[in-house]
Amino acid sequence: MEFNLPVPLEGLKETGPTAFLTKTYNIVEDSSTNKIVSWSRDNNSFIVWEPEIFALICLPRCFKHNNFSSFVRQLNTYGFKKIDTERWEFANEYFLKGQRHLLKNIKRRKTSSSQTQTQTHSLEGREIEEMRRDRVALVVELERLRRKHETMKTHLHSMEEKLRVTEVKQDMMLDFLLKKITKPSFLEGLRKRKKQGIKNREQKQEVMSSSHVVEVHETFVKAEPDEYGDELHIASMEDQGQEGDELEMDSEGIWKGFMLSEEMCDLEEHLI
Rank of each mutant, 00 (worst) to 15 (best):
P6K: 13
P6T: 12
V7H: 08
L12P: 14
K13T: 13
K13Y: 11
E14R: 08
E14T: 13
T15P: 15
G16W: 01
F20H: 00
F20K: 00
L21A: 06
T22A: 01
K23T: 04
T24L: 08
Y25R: 02
N26G: 14
E29Y: 02
N34L: 08
I36M: 02
V37R: 04
S38A: 04
W39G: 12
W39A: 07
S40N: 15
R41H: 08
N44E: 11
S45P: 09
S45I: 02
F46T: 00
V48A: 01
E50Y: 11
P51F: 07
P51S: 12
P51G: 11
E52L: 02
F54N: 00
F54G: 00
L56E: 10
I57D: 10
C58Q: 04
C58P: 03
C58H: 02
R61F: 08
C62Q: 05
K64E: 13
N66K: 01
N66C: 04
N67T: 07
S69Y: 00
S70L: 05
F71I: 01
V72M: 03
V72L: 04
R73M: 04
Q74H: 04
K82P: 14
I83Q: 03
D84A: 12
D84Q: 07
T85K: 11
E86G: 04
F90E: 13
A91P: 07
A91R: 12
A91Y: 01
E93R: 03
F95S: 03
L96R: 05
Q99Y: 07
Q99K: 13
Q99G: 15
H101F: 04
H101A: 09
I106M: 01
R108Q: 09
R109D: 14
K110Q: 13
S113A: 13
S113F: 07
Q117K: 03
Q117N: 11
T118G: 08
H121Q: 15
S122W: 10
I128T: 07
I128E: 10
E130H: 09
M131G: 09
V136F: 13
A137C: 09
V139G: 14
V140E: 15
L142I: 08
